[in-house]
Structure formats: C-alpha cells, structure tokens
C-alpha cells in the first residue's frame, strides 16, 4: 500500500478529537492530545477553518467542528425546497412592509437570489431570481458572512470592491460590522451597494442552527431609513440606519421560514 499523506491523517485526527467528548478545545489541548508541535497543529486548524470544517470561538479562541462538516454529513437543503417553504412568509413580508423581498443563499463567493417578491405597487419590476449579489456589502451577504463561516472566509479572502462611497472594504471595519450583525441578529445595507437603496436582512437557520440563507427587504432609503440617523455607521447597532420595525418584521419572517424547515429553536 502506498504511503498515506501525513498531513491529511493529522487533519482527520484533529476532526475526530473535536467530534468526541469535549466539544471545544484550545490549541495547546489539541497539540498535546495528538502529540503535535503547536505550529503544526495551528497550521492544520487554520486550513480546516478556511474550509469551514472547524470554527474558532471568538471569545475563548477555542476550536470546534464547523458548519461545513454538517453540510457534508447531511444532505444540504435544496434551494427550491427553501423557496417553496418561504413563499407564504415572504409574500406576507412584502405585503406588510410594502417593499420587495429577496431570499438569497451562498453560491460561488456571492449571494444567489433564489426567490424574489415584487414591491406591491403597480410599477414594472423585473424578476431577479438567478441574479448574483456581492457578499461584502449587501444586507443578505452580510448576514451570510456573519453566520456562515464559509461565507465569511470567502468574503475575507475575496475582493471587496467599493461600489458606493459608503461601501465598507477594509478588513477591520468589515469584521466590526459583522460582529455587530451577530450581536443584533440582523444586517443592514444603507447605500453600500446601490446609491439610494437600503436593505435589511436576517438569517434562515436549519435544524442544525446553520445559516442556510437570508431574507431581505430592499427599497428606497427614504422609505427604509431612520430619518436623521447617522446612516451606515458600521459597528454601531443603534445606528444601523434602517427602521427598527422593518428589522423586526424581517426577523419574524426569517424565523417563520426557519421553523418551517425544522428549526425548533425560534
């Protein structure tokens, strides 16, 4: 038998270690348990983290199994199934908010729009199902980056072009923004992707708690914004720049869909 690849064997050992017993382990525990040099263990963990197989808890620095492993192990949620479960909820949201509603999932380093409900007025609108939106600046993208480590890595490692004067492109403020999104449970985009357009989004979580998609209300800043607020101030939840009642409605809608796809926690 040919010699096996040592680094893969070690990576497998790390995963087995994280899967058994204590869920979260620090770097030294992992290194000493497996008899590896700290630098070697760290290299393996960093690679697994980039692939989404391992996550690092921000506060303690400890490691745990990542969402991507769950995605591998369980047949992933079909986006068309997701759309048919979301239909009633998103129709309600469009009706109550008076704005258009989008449902997006992570796809090839961006957000793929899998469902779109028109703004309920008589204006001509084009169905945007199948379109791609950027990860780093849209409300949908920020929610996915904040709650899905794979999306997070893709946004960190990918390009973050400046699309308007307000787009957050630098790593530190971007991370700060994501931390704020995690804190409050929803994301906003105040003219960071398109001039004059704002959006607010919340995560859809499956039965493992994984963020499998996001739902956003999108519309003119004049209608969505908080009058007089310091719009788009990154990292400051109290100044996210969109009406709090809309954020609440979007979260309720996303919770409703999450419940329908089997997440009992909400």
């Amino acid at each position: 038998m040919a010699k096996n690849i040592q680094s893969l064997e070690r990576a497998a050992a790390v995963l087995r270690l994280l899967a058994g017993g204590e869920r979260r382990l620090g770097l030294s525990d992992i290194a000493s348990s497996l008899g590896l040099a700290k630098a070697t263990a760290h290299g393996i963990l960093r690679t697994l983290q980039a692939e989404g197989f391992v996550e690092q808890e921000a506060a303690s620095g400890r490691y745990q199994l990542g969402a991507e492993l769950l995605r591998l192990g369980n047949s992933y949620l079909d986006v068309h199934e997701l759309r048919s479960r979301a239909l009633v909820w998103t129709d309600d949201l469009a009706r109550s908010s008076g704005e258009s509603v989008h449902l997006g999932v992570l796809h090839q380093g961006g957000v793929l729009i899998v469902h779109h409900v028109f703004r309920p007025d008589d204006s001509r609108q084009v169905l945007e199902v199948g379109a791609m939106q950027p990860l780093h600046c849209t409300a949908l993208g920020k929610v996915l980056c904040a709650f899905d480590p794979v999306a997070h890595n893709e946004a960190i490692e990918g390009r973050r072009p400046s699309l308007t004067a307000r787009t957050v492109t630098l790593p530190v403020p971007f991370e700060a923004e994501l931390a704020a999104v995690r804190e409050r449970g929803w994301a906003s985009d105040v003219e960071e992707t398109w001039d004059g357009v704002s959006a607010v989004a919340a995560p859809i979580r499956d039965r493992h708690g994984m963020a499998v998609g996001a739902i956003a209300v999108t519309g003119a800043s004049e209608r969505l914004g908080v009058p007089g607020a310091a719009a788009g101030a990154a990292g400051r939840p109290e100044a996210a720049g969109v009406r709090p009642d809309l954020a609440a409605a979007v979260r309720d809608c996303a919770r409703g869909v999450s419940r329908d796809i089997g997440n009992g926690r909400f």
Partner: peptide, 10 residues
Amino acid sequence: MSDNTTGTSS
C-alpha cells in the same frame, strides 16, 4: 403567522 409580519399593516 406572527403578529409582527402582519402587524406593520393597517
């Protein structure tokens, strides 16, 4: 249907 999704309506 939660109160909030329809609650913003009139």
